[in-house]
Amino acid sequence: MDDPEERFTELYDRHYRNVLGYALLRAERQSAEDIASETFLIAWRRLAQVPEHPLPWLLVVARNLLRKQRHLELRPLRLTLSAPEGDVADQVGERQAALDALARLSGADAEALILTSWYGLGPAEAAKVVGCSARTFAVRLHRARRRLADMLNSSQTVLQEQLR
């Protein structure tokens, strides 16, 4: 694609939601939207440097902006990932259990799960985003999956006991 404006617009259309979703993990909504916009402004200014697979690059830019603006910690996921209207009770319950479990993970573990499950990033790409080695990230992801599964299993056990 030769036309830079066309290339940029496609980049925005394809990845805006991904970048905003990532920013929302650390910033409240208005700030997150501003950070997503600023991320794409930087992408426009550096369009020649944006790689063929741009998402990890965009998330690194967003992460740097978040850090610059002192959004260093993951927000309570409950605030970010509020349940959509119209969910049936089972879905709400399952969702709530997942939210509770995610909220009890460390920020790094939760981020590892989100980067791989929301964006389909492999360990090497996700590691670049969070600034660690691919091996470290793979270990972190494995640990996060195991802890989440353990917590979900224990919460189901508690729920079943309460129903008896």
């Binding site: 969702r95 997942a98 995610l102 799960l113 989100i114 499950s117 929301w118 989440l148 979900l152």
Partner: peptide, 8 residues
Amino acid sequence: TDELVRAL
């Protein structure tokens, strides 16, 4: 777990 997180 990945599907659960993705649904969030």
